[in-house]
């Protein structure tokens, strides 16, 4: 069933359109930066953006910072919201279930396909943004990569390309976990309603609310528990030494959301009447 879900996803033009859109955003930003050479002032704008002007090899990290807060979660919410509700409204859910495909199995397969999508999208963004970065900004000699001053506490620290790759790997893993939290919200809603749009909308409502509360000082009491609170903690992978505190908390929160919501999705889906 997992194989079938993967085949379904990768034979769907939609998957590639979404991935292309995700890759397009960093590309557009890069073109503007490269033609004007006006970096955002340190501390403002996307992370790493001023640093990439001197070293294009850092652009994948900048690209992640660009797609992570909005674009990537939106596409994950749309796809996860469609996972079960989309099958229901296309009339294929009932045929899968009488095939028979166990309901638990179906949910697991959907989740695995979503993870595959997130990985596929991230890798696509990393590869295209690395190529754009090197092509438009050039890269420094292979001796090492200087960590950008606006991110690291001290400037001038250099890491090896291998170190950079390792940090990027950690970033990818962290973002996948964060996006799984989004997927869990949308997947749960997808088992509640037969409208894919409704499920995606609901998940986005949760995320937007959470984002707003994160910036609101009055909501400080609940901030540590918001799903988006530690979304950008992966930037800490690019500090020297790596600052683990927020990363650990972020993973912890996502795991809790994941377990609770997937449990709810499972409980709801396995006991629900399929009337569509």
């Amino acid at each position: 069933m997992i194989r079938v879900e993967l085949v379904k996803m990768f034979r769907r033009p939609r998957t590639y359109v979404v991935a292309a859109l995700l890759c397009g955003l960093p590309l557009i930003v890069a073109v503007f930066l490269a033609t004007t050479r006006i970096p955002p002032p340190p501390g403002q704008g996307g992370a790493f953006l001023s640093a990439v002007l001197s070293n294009g090899a850092l652009y994948p990290a900048a690209a992640m910072a660009l797609v992570m807060p909005v674009f990537l979660p939106v596409s994950v919410a749309v796809l996860a919201g469609d996972a079960v509700a989309g099958e229901a409204s296309a009339g294929t859910l009932r045929y899968l279930l009488v095939r028979p495909v166990g309901r638990t199995r179906l949910l697991v397969a959907k989740l695995v396909a979503l993870v595959a999508f997130v990985l596929f999208a991230i890798v696509a963004v990393l590869v295209t943004s690395y190529l754009t970065g090197v092509a438009l900004f050039g890269s420094e000699p292979a001796a090492g990569v200087a960590l950008p001053a606006d991110v690291t506490s001290m400037s001038g620290v250099t890491i090896t390309p291998a170190g950079l790759a390792l940090r990027l790997l950690g970033t990818v893993a962290y973002i996948v976990v964060s996006m799984l939290g989004v997927a869990a919200i949308a997947l749960f809603l997808s088992t509640v309603t037969d409208s894919a749009l409704g499920a995606a909308m609901g998940a986005l409502a949760v995320l937007v609310t959470s984002q707003v509360l994160v910036t609101l000082d009055a909501a400080a009491a609940v901030q540590p528990y918001l799903p988006t609170r530690y979304w950008l903690a992966w930037i800490d992978f690019f500090r020297d030494p790596i600052l683990w505190r927020d990363i650990e908390r972020g993973v912890g929160i996502q795991v809790v959301y994941l377990l609770v919501l997937l449990g709810a999705a499972w409980a709801n889906f396995t006991t629900r009447d399929v009337t569509n």
């Binding site: 069933m1 194989r3 079938v4 085949v7 379904k8 034979r11 769907r12 033009p13 296309a90 009339g91 294929t92 859910l93 009932r94 045929y95 899968l96 009488v98 095939r99 028979p100 495909v101």
Partner: peptide
């Protein structure tokens, strides 16, 4: 079984639909 009209993935061919359907179950 056929319940309340057929269901198929609209972007795939009929043969691809049947192949996926066959592969989905035991």
């Amino acid at each position: 079984a056929m319940v309340e009209g057929p269901g198929a993935y609209p972007h795939l061919s009929g043969r691809a639909n049947l192949t996926l359907f066959d592969a989905a179950g035991p």
